[in-house]
């Protein structure tokens, strides 16, 4: 087996919002992480994984991103991020960022364009479907409760959101979406970050035809992910 540096590494996960507040607004921030780097170094770990610090309306604590190339103002700005990265590297700590690309925020420019009209160039960045007899296109239930489909009055279609309404799923079938994701990854990697933790990455490829989910209990919604029925016993 070819040995890789990450096989010997230990990772420390930082949830910036709850780690260290530096400006008294009650929310942890990047300057706070910077201040606490010596503590992390003392523990002896090799890598820091930062939960999302991108610009976000914060419906799901940063997992709803409105700009992949900017920093959440509550957490700081790009200048402080760059400083954190270089100081971490100076201490011999690598930095891994969260990559949240199953969905964006509904405040992302792509989605704002997408919902404008059926023939908008960004329409196919997301998963839009017609309803069935005034009902959602299928019976999927969201992980955060309710249907996974949200009706959008402007174009009279539904969009898919496996998580919250404010987190529309990206359409990975569209090669332009993939190119945009590769581009934003390069943006961060070229800054010198040391990798990605990829949020719900096995959800990016949806089942062909988006069929109804099993619903043995006759609940309001089908069961999109019956993981307690899988595998173990």
């Amino acid at each position: 087996m070819k040995k890789k540096w990450w096989q010997k590494a230990v990772v420390y996960q930082v949830y910036p919002r709850s780690f260290q507040d530096s400006n008294g607004d009650g929310i942890g921030d990047l300057a706070g992480v910077l201040q606490r780097l010596p503590y992390i170094k003392k523990l002896g770990v090799d890598v820091i994984w930062l939960n999302p610090v991108y610009k976000s309306p914060d419906k799901d604590n940063g997992y709803d991103i409105s700009d992949y190339r900017d920093i959440q103002p509550k957490f700081g700005d790009m200048k402080i991020f760059d400083k954190l990265l270089s100081e971490a590297h100076r201490l011999g700590l690598k930095v891994v960022m969260d990559l949240v690309v199953n969905h964006t925020s509904d405040q992302h420019e792509w989605f704002k364009e997408s919902r404008k009209s059926i023939d908008n160039p960004y329409r196919d960045f997301y998963i839009w479907r017609d309803g069935q007899d005034g009902q959602a296109p299928n019976n999927w239930g969201s992980y955060f409760g309710g249907s996974t489909w949200k009706y959008d009055e402007a174009t009279k279609q539904y969009y898919l959101h496996l998580f919250a309404e404010g987190q529309p799923d990206l359409n990975w079938e569209n090669p332009e979406v993939r190119e945009q994701v590769w581009e934003l990854m390069r943006f961060w990697l070229d800054k010198g970050i040391d990798g990605f933790r990829m949020d719900v990455i096995n959800f990016i490829s949806k089942p062909e035809g988006l069929p109804d989910a099993p619903n043995p209990e006759n609940a309001e919604y089908g069961d999109v992910e019956p993981w307690w029925q899988m595998g173990l016993n």
Binding site: W5, W6, A9, V47, K94, V96, L189, I193, D194, G195, F196, R197, M198, D199, V200, I201, N202, F203, E225, W227, M230, G231
Partner: peptide, 11 residues
């Protein structure tokens, strides 16, 4: 670089 994918329900 390193990559780790969160994969609910993967076998």
């Amino acid at each position: 670089v390193m990559s780790v994918g969160e994969m609910p329900s993967s076998k």
